[in-house]
Each structure stands twice: as structure tokens, then as C-alpha cells.
Simulated assay, not measured.
Amino acid sequence: MFMLIKKSFAWFITSIVLTFFFIPLVAEELDLYSIKSNASVSSLRFSQNAQKEVLEKLIIRLTNPNLTNAKNIINNYFPDPSRYIKQFQPDVNGQGSIVIMDGESVQKVLLDAGESLWGIDRPPIMVFIAIESGLGEREIVVSDSGFNSFSSSINLDKNQPIKNNILSIAEERGLQIIFPDMNDRDQEVLNFSDVWAGFLDNMLDVSNNYGASNILTAKIRQDEIREHEWRFYFGKDVISFRSNMDQAIHRVANLMSERYMYSGEIPPNEIFINFGLVDSIVDLGEIHLIFKSLSMVESYTINEINQDNIFLNVTYNGPRSDLELSLNKIDNIIPNNDLIRNRRTHNKNQDILNFNIN
């Protein structure tokens, strides 16, 4: 009876994957193509300079400014920048406008021009900033929601300018920045000394609760106004440097873009991923949500269904180690190192990752 149930389940899975899984993933990070402009709606409608400004901001997000010149690119390849503006509206949270760009078309022009791009693959960055203000006052910069949860509404967050500065540059470069809430759960694991001394394990424990695997830390002393000590834990790399706040965020953005940039001449990577112990449609839904949550995954298809195992052919951008690291951090799956590491397909060996549904 057990085998019959398994076979029936495999048959049922096969019957629905044609309409459910054989489609490319679509990025949900629409903010990547949303640009804040100081120009009014009227200027965006009639002024080519205003249109070029928002296009330049998008190109800066999609490329590495150290390697490209957005103004030259626009002059050479975008004679009519208005064609790449989908819509715009007044910014209800401030002056100027919010502009939605046709990001896919812009990327196509850039790739055709031979430029390398940093697309939707933008893993979040957990930011831990430890501030030593003198007279024994030490603190970690917390998120707005974290500050509001344990402070009176009349109190002002004196670290708000620091957060605003970091978030402003992060938005310019298309980075996802997360500050910790430092709620009771966080404080059980992490304190000021952990950040100051660089105890990575504790910071990783907190970061995992926020879905971030990359960590940026800063040590700010009251007597060091211009430059601070920074450390960027990026995959398996640890980059230490001194800089001011603006330069630090730009440096992190450049490091990430260098890793994740691709061009029309470099196709996405491919890998087989096997999920074992798939017993129900709920498990199938979990697999779908896993890949939907991974920005570096472009698409995936069912390659084979065998009893309670599903083999997927996955295309992705970026290093294989980053993909494996991201999967290893997902709670409802666990690595299965007992299975083979590669399988033969199309007369060649292709790498494979193995996981079990937990």
C-alpha cells in the first residue's frame, strides 16, 4: 500500500508540474526599478534632462560605477530616455516624484551594448553598528520598529541620522539593508561586545532570524568622526577596512556587484537539486516557495520524479557556494550528504545538491 501511495503521489505531481513548475521565476523586487526623483511630474513629462536623470540613477543601480560611466552610456545608447519610463507620480512622502522604469528593456539595451549587469540578485545585508559614545554609554543601532517598541513616542532616536544616511545610499545602489530590532530574542543572543569584538556566530544567529546571511559591522567611537572600522562578512569572505559611512556602503555595493554581475556573453549557471522525503502537496508548495524566495535563482524545472524524490534543474546567477549557503540556511530543508554529489546527464557530469524536506 505504501508503494502504491507513493506512485500515485508521483503521478499526481507529474500531472500538475506542467502548469506549475515549468515557468521562469519572476522577480518580486519591483523597487529595483522604482526611482526617486527631485523633478516634478511636469518636468518628467517634458524635460529630457529630468528623464536622463532617472535613467542614470537606474543604470548606476544595475552596473558598477567604478567600471561604467552612466552618462556616456545614456548618450550612446539611449537617445530617447522617455521610452524607458513606464509611469510616474508625486512622491507622497516628500518632494519630487516616484518613477517606475522599464527595467527589463533597460537591461536588454545594456547587455546588447556589452555592459555587465547586476540584476535582481540582491541578498539582504544585516547591519550591526556598535557605538561607543563615552562615559560608558554603549549601544547597537536598532531598527525604527525596534526603537519604537521600547521607547516613548516623544523620544527621538539619536541614531536616526546614521540610519537615514545608510538607507539613502543603499537605496541609490539598490541594496537591501536590515537593522536589528534588538528585541528580547535578539538580546538573548547578541550584545554590544559581540559586535565590537566581531563574534560572528552570535551575529549570524540573529541575522538568520531576519533572513540575511551577509553581515556588515561598524565600530564607531565618539572621537572618530570621519572614518570608522568596518567589517563585511560576505559569504565565506571577510573584508575589513576603514572609511566614512558613505564610502563604506558604496564599497559594499561594489563588492556585491562584482560578484553577481553578468553579461550577455555569460549564461546563467545550472545545477541539479534533489529534494527527498517529499510526501505531500504541502512539501511541493514549500519547494516552490523556497526557490521563489531566492533572488539568485532565475528558473527551475522538474527533471525527474522518483518515488519521494524530486530532481530539479535550476538556473541561477552568482557563485555556486552562495546558492548552497542560502539553501543551507532554510529551516524546513536539511542537506543530505549521503546521496551522490553528481549525476550523469546529456553525456556529461553535472553537479547536484541533495536535501531532504524536514
Rank of each mutant, 00 (worst) to 15 (best):
P124W: 08
G119K: 13
D112K: 13
P268C: 00
G114A: 11
Q350E: 14
M182V: 08
E29D: 11
P79M: 13
S105G: 07
K348W: 12
F46A: 04
Y77E: 07
I220M: 09
L111C: 02
N148A: 15
L190T: 14
N214K: 12
Q307H: 10
E171D: 10
R341G: 13
I60G: 06
K163M: 05
V109C: 07
Y316M: 00
K71E: 08
N332D: 12
T19I: 07
I266Q: 05
I154F: 15
D279K: 10
Y210G: 07
Y84G: 01
I162E: 00
W11E: 09
S299F: 01
A39T: 00
F241L: 02
G211W: 07
M245I: 12
H346P: 01
M3Q: 13
K236C: 03
K52F: 03
L135H: 14
P79R: 10
S8W: 10
A253T: 07
I290M: 03
K86N: 13
N356R: 12
L111R: 14
I178C: 05
F232Y: 15
I352A: 13
W196E: 04
S213H: 11
L339A: 08
L30E: 08
V26A: 06
Q350G: 08
H288V: 02
S280H: 08
P180G: 04
D112G: 06
E171L: 08
V142F: 09
I125V: 11
S145C: 10
E298W: 02
S116V: 07
A10T: 11
F21I: 00
T301Y: 12
Y316F: 14
V206P: 07
I290R: 03
E132L: 09
G285Y: 09
L289S: 04
I273H: 00
S326E: 09
F12C: 03
N75E: 09
N164R: 15
S151G: 09
A212F: 03
N303E: 06
E139Y: 15
F21W: 11
S105D: 10
R221G: 06
I271N: 01
E28Y: 11
D184T: 11
K219P: 00
D194H: 15
F78S: 02
R320F: 06
M261G: 00
Q87E: 10
G103H: 12
A39W: 11
G114H: 14
Q89D: 05
I166L: 03
I60K: 09
A130M: 02
